[in-house]
C-alpha cells in the first residue's frame, strides 16, 4: 500500500504530536492536560507511523516492547507514593518542590507530576500494545 500523502503527513505530524504530548503532560496540573491525554497523543503519533510505514517501524522507533512501557510506567507511578510513605503520610499524598532556577523562576516539581509521567508511559504502552495487536495480522504471539 503506497499512501504517499499519509507518509508525507506522518513525517511532519508525528514529531509535532510527540512534542505536543509532552506539553500536555507538563501543563496538566493547572490547565487541561495530563498524563493520560499526553500519552494518548504520543501513542497516536507512533500509531501514525505504524499506519504509514508498517508496525515494524513503529516498534523500532519505540525501541522497547510496548508492554515494557506499561511495566515501567506503572513502576514510576507506583514509586511516586514512596515519599509520602517514608514520611508517614497516607500513600500518594502529594509533595511539591520548587527549586528557583536562574532566568526561569520557580520550577514546580512534585510527586503528582512524577505520577503523571508514569501514567504517560503506561498509556503509551497500553495503546500501542492494542494498536500493534490490531495491525499485525499474523503474529501469533499476540493473544
Amino acid at each position: 500500500m503506497s499512501a504517499v500523502i499519509l507518509r508525507i503527513a506522518t513525517k511532519y505530524l508525528s514529531p509535532v504530536l510527540l512534542i505536543v504530548s509532552l506539553v500536555l503532560l507538563l501543563r496538566g496540573h493547572n490547565d487541561p492536560g495530563g498524563g493520560f491525554i499526553g500519552g494518548l497523543l504520543a501513542a497516536s503519533g507512533l500509531a501514525l507511523q505504524a499506519l504509514a510505514y508498517g508496525s515494524a517501524r513503529a516498534r523500532r522507533l519505540l525501541r522497547y516492547d510496548p508492554r515494557t512501557f506499561i511495566g515501567g510506567g506503572l513502576l514510576l507511578a507506583l514509586s511516586s507514593g514512596i515519599p509520602a510513605l517514608l514520611s508517614g503520610e497516607p500513600w500518594l499524598k502529594g509533595y511539591w518542590w520548587k527549586p528557583e532556577l536562574p532566568l526561569l523562576g520557580a520550577l514546580p516539581l512534585g510527586t503528582p507530576l512524577w505520577f503523571d509521567i508514569g501514567i504517560y508511559f503506561t498509556v503509551i504502552g497500553f495503546t500501542l500494545t492494542i494498536v500493534f495487536a490490531l495491525a499485525e495480522h499474523d503474529e501469533r504471539e499476540e493473544y
Partner: peptide, 20 residues
C-alpha cells in the same frame, strides 16, 4: 471514559482475533 476506552480497545482486538 478512560476505562471504557481501555475495555473497548481490548474488545476490538478480541473480535478481530475471533473473526480471524
Amino acid at each position: 471514559i478512560v476505562i471504557s476506552f481501555g475495555l473497548f480497545a481490548f474488545f476490538l482486538v478480541l473480535i478481530k482475533r475471533a473473526h480471524q
